[in-house]
Amino acid sequence: MGMQIAHIMASCMGGIRTAGDLVAWMQITRRMKIREAKAYVAKKLAIDPFELTDEEIMRELRKDLGIGTVTSIAGSPKGILAKSRVARLLDINIRSVALFRSQLDA
C-alpha cells in the first residue's frame, strides 16, 4: 500500500481532492492524452490547466459545482449524484450514471 501512496504523492493529480477524476474521465471515455485531457477539463471549468491540481482553487469549484469534495460535507453531492453532474459538466457518457438515469426515468 505504501508504494501506491508514494506514487500518488509523487505524480498523481489528486483524484477528487483536485481535478484528477475529471481528467481521468476524459482519458477513459475519449482516449485523450494527458495534455489534451487537462486542456479539455480546464476549459470546461474556465480555469488554467495549471490550476487543475491546485487544492485551493479546485476545492471551491468542486463545492460550487456539486461534483464531490474530498472532505465529507453534509448535504453536498457525492457518489452517483456527483458523477451525474460530472457527466453533464464534461459532456461525456458515464455508464453508471446512464443506468441510474434510466432507472430514475423508468
Binding site: M1, Q4, A6, H7, I8, M9, A10, S11, C12, M13, G14, G20, V23, A24, Q27, I34, A37, P49, F50, T53
Partner: peptide
C-alpha cells in the same frame, strides 16, 4: 529521500488492484 513531479506535470494514476491492497 523522496522526489516528485513539478507542479503542473501531474498525471493520472489508474488503479490496478490497489484498492484490494487494503
Amino acid at each position: 529521500r523522496i522526489v516528485s513531479v513539478k507542479p503542473g506535470n501531474e498525471v493520472i494514476v489508474t488503479d490496478d488492484g490497489c484498492s484490494m491492497s487494503f
